[in-house]
């Protein structure tokens, strides 16, 4: 084990795969000479050269589509899209081609590509630069979407994504890049499609992914200290496929749940989780499943408005307390 930042863990995974497999190459805006907008690819151009670390013009639709095509011939492109907001320019190529080629041609062609892209608000970047639209991709059969919340998973899931024969979108998060944690020294990929219990508990289940899964852990620790509440945290880490069994098993044990998400509430990822709990743990539930999500507005620039619109640890704590109050009244 070595303590690494989320940023370094992603970098390590890219470097490992570039060294291991000649067919892996990186492309994206400013990833080479500029070393990446968020410096994930720092040093890789020097080490692997411009053939393997390819700077692109600002042309998301073009280079993402080109990655699909290169993958169809067996290369393993890893595309960096500067933030998930700009992936919308490539939405067509991702949804209509990356996710379709395998099925539409009867399984004859594979698309072993990766799209790495960070989401996240909270940096006062305004309405178009603060969105969490991972749902758009998690909605689409044929896509795989993973959302690591700590450095160990960042490395292990990116390794898995690059080795996978399907298009995988790796959702990173601006607020997580500097977070640190223990990362195994080996290069074992994590299984895509499985959730992880990051804290065991008996009183309530917190379900989250990406940044909010890290927040959920902090919330659980605070609640243990202040309220003596023993929360279990389920880190989804894979949004498609979704590991419903792990979520349901946890709620069958705790009998209540709060879902934390950075995206919008209506039709969001949390809605799918809540529906899953309703399907799989209805008879075990002692309170409605609460969701804590971003306010449904184009995110304003002004700090007080932005802060109010984004889900916080305090919002989560309030939701947990209210849920447990409802449980107590029922029992």
């Amino acid at each position: 084990m070595t303590v690494r930042s989320y940023r370094e863990a992603l970098h390590d995974a890219l470097r490992t795969e570039l060294r291991r497999d000649e067919s892996v190459f990186l492309l994206g805006e400013e990833i080479g000479r500029f070393e990446g907008s968020y410096k994930i690819t720092a040093g890789l151009l020097d080490e692997f050269g411009p053939k393997r670390v390819r700077d692109t013009p600002i042309a998301e639709e073009g280079f993402t589509g080109a990655a699909v095509g290169a993958a169809m011939l067996g290369l393993r492109p890893v595309v960096e899209i500067m933030t998930i907001n700009f992936s919308l320019l490539a939405l067509d190529q991702i949804v209509n081609h990356a996710a379709k080629v395998y099925g539409m041609f009867g399984g004859q062609a594979r698309v072993p590509m990766v799209i790495r892209t960070p989401g996240g608000g909270g940096q006062q970047l305004g309405a178009t630069h603060s969105q969490n639209v991972e749902l758009y991709y998690a909605f689409v059969p044929g896509m795989k979407v993973v959302a690591p919340s700590d450095p160990a998973d960042a490395k292990a899931l990116l390794l898995a994504a690059i080795r996978d024969d399907d298009p995988v979108l790796v959702l990173e998060n601006l607020a997580l890049y500097n977070t640190r944690g223990e990362v195994p020294d080996h290069d074992e990929p994590a299984p895509i499609g499985t959730a992880r219990i990051t804290r065991t508990g008996t009183d309530i289940t917190l379900v989250a992914y990406s940044r909010m899964a890290a927040v959920a852990l902090q919330v659980a620790e605070r609640l243990a200290e202040t309220d003596g509440i023993d929360a279990e945290v389920v880190d989804l880490r894979s949004l498609r496929p979704l590991d419903r069994d792990t979520v349901v098993a946890s709620v069958r044990k705790t009998n209540c749940a709060v879902v934390l998400e950075d995206d919008w509430l209506t039709y969001g990822i949390g809605a799918e989780v809540a529906a899953t709990i309703s399907d799989g743990a209805f008879d075990w539930l002692d309170a409605p499943v609460r969701r804590v999500a971003m306010a449904e507005v184009p995110l304003p620039y002004a700090k007080p408005l932005e802060t109010a619109a984004l889900p916080s640890a305090d919002d989560a704590i309030a939701a947990v307390r209210q849920t447990l109050d409802a449980v107590a009244r029922r029992r």
Binding site: R291, A293, D315, A319
Partner: peptide, 10 residues
């Protein structure tokens, strides 16, 4: 939907 992040639906 005019709801702050901590507010419940119902």
């Amino acid at each position: 939907a005019r709801r702050l992040p901590g507010e419940p639906l119902f």
